[in-house]
Design a protein around this nucleic acid. Structure first.
Length: 422
RNA sequence: GGAGAGGUGGCCGAGCGGUCGAAGGCGGGGGCUUGCUAAGCCUUUUCUCAGGUUAAAAGCCUGAGACGAGGGUUCAAAUCCCUCCCUCUCCGCCA
């Protein structure tokens, strides 16, 4: 959520440019401005009336001490009260409506973010690694995994539905090997481990920006009013909810493994084969709380962390700077890291690393007390480090052999106790 | 799920119908002191919204609101009543 000062003067112009660059129409901001004006009118009216009432009340208490008659004043106060009641009700409706629309306004992109309409205008920053060559036609991961009996797509469908899979035997072991390797890596890089709840309440979903805009993307348990986490970013954001941190406590680095649950509403028919897009997947998430002035340095450092992780697994990747039109709702600047998969013959997004500045901390009310005593919202950053499915695809496809086996990347061998899956 | 206790400013903790945005302490800021040993003394210190002042911001001024959340009683609520949420203790249930 943005500061309300974006509704005035120069900042309003900035906000309008931001919305345009993100591909939003004018309707939203017009609606917000209209409601803001109405809201201010009501605030003024209500405040004035309340001031009047407070004055009368004060008079009553003063006279009462002297034992004088106050029945006239009480009558007057009652009348003001009637009027006030009506105004306050109307004001509340307007304010709620205003804040609802205001919370649909996305973050302002950082000045270093390229302006563009969609993913075609993202900027490739750098690439690493050689694309493996084969003297046979490489197969897609689902064929290899099915044949080796390490992923059961059929069973996933039977047990839960499409876009769910069952990892079996060495498949499950490989999955855990990846998760544990990611965890170990994050720990080495100075992040502290968290195991958060996998179900969270509405406020927590609001804090990270998932609600109210993306309600349909989430699994919701009506009976208990809880949501399944779509990413560990959600509970991690709320780790310091309603808190004021000391400057000396920052930066804080956290990581958490969680399964991630996404309805993938609107993705029907897209990426249906394999494990590229699923309703449930595993991810280790990196998260930072930083001082505002340090967040962009910390952002670059987080990208570097993930790059090192991919290098250690010898997975070819490229770093992509998302343009304004492709960036997520809460983000001010996002790098995607895409891994190359020979079976798909394309780069797949395996990590998304964002600096959301104070967009989430404002919602979650997380501040830092500066040396001068002033309180300021902290900046938060999040990045996948990493999500398993796309990494798994890359490993299966890039390390396949002619016989349909998978050569296990060196760092994972100690977990599996073998070099090759056959 | 049942019984009880409680939720107050960065923290601890008073207040239990009007003069309370809230005593006191700790912590933080500023200053003074430096013969009674990283001490003492003085002073200051919540946030949000609206309006005014301003080129604008800061600051300042005016008003409103906030003592877990939401309702209610009352001219007036941190203080009384109701509902919900959370924390703690005990009991029950349970991996």
């Amino acid at each position: 959520m943005l500061d309300l000062s974006y509704l005035k003067g120069d900042k309003l112009e900035k906000l309008k440019v931001s919305l345009k660059n993100r591909g939003y129409g004018l309707e939203l901001i017009e609606k917000v401005l209209e409601l803001d004006n109405k809201r201010k009118e009501y605030i003024k009216k209500v405040d004035e009336l309340r001031a009047k009432k407070n004055e009368v009340s004060k008079k009553i208490s003063q006279l009462k001490v002297k034992n004088e008659d106050v029945s006239n004043l009480i009558e007057e106060a009652k009348q003001i009260d009637n009027e006030l009641q009506l105004l306050e009700d109307e004001r509340k409706i307007i304010e709620n409506e205003f804040y609802y629309y205001w919370s649909l306004i996305p973050n302002i992109p950082h000045e270093s973010v390229p302006v563009g309409k969609d993913s075609s205008e993202n900027k490739i920053i750098r690439s690493w690694g050689d694309i493996p060559k084969f003297d046979f036609e490489p197969k897609p991961h689902w064929e290899i995994a099915e044949k080796l009996n390490i992923i059961d797509f059929q069973k996933g469908g039977e047990i839960a539905g499409s876009r769910f899979v069952v990892y079996k035997g060495l498949g499950a072991e490989l999955e855990w090997a990846l998760i544990n390797y990611f965890r170990e890596f994050a720990k080495k890089r100075g992040y502290a481990e968290i195991i958060p709840p996998f179900l969270v309440n509405e406020r927590t979903m609001f804090n990270s920006g998932q609600l109210p805009k993306f309600k349909d993307e989430m699994y919701y348990i009506e009976k208990d009013n809880l949501y399944l986490v779509p990413t560990a970013e959600v509970p991690l954001t709320s780790l310091f909810v309603d808190r004021v941190l000391e400057e000396s406590e920052l930066p804080v680095y956290y990581f958490a493994y969680t399964p991630c649950f996404r309805r993938e509403a609107g993705a029907y028919g897209k990426d249906v084969r394999g494990i590229k897009r699923m309703h449930q997947f595993n991810k280790v998430e990196l998260y930072k709380f930083t001082l505002p002035e340090n967040s962009y340095i910390e952002h670059e450092k987080m990208v570097e962390d993930v790059e090192e992780l991919l290098k250690s697994l010898n997975i070819p990747y490229r770093v992509v700077l998302l343009c304004t039109g492709d960036m997520g709702f809460a983000s001010a600047k996002t790098y995607d890291i895409e891994v190359y998969c020979v079976g798909q013959k394309e780069y797949l997004e395996a990590s998304s690393i964002s600096n959301v500045e104070n967009f989430q901390s404002r919602r979650a009310n997380i501040k830092v007390r500066r040396k001068n005593g002033k309180k300021e919202f902290v900046h938060t950053l999040n990045g996948s480090g990493l999500a398993t499915p796309r990494v798994l695809i890359s490993i299966i496809e890039n390390n396949q052999t002619k016989e349909g086996y998978i050569v296990v990347p060196e760092p994972l061998r100690k977990y599996l106790g073998l070099d090759i899956i056959k």
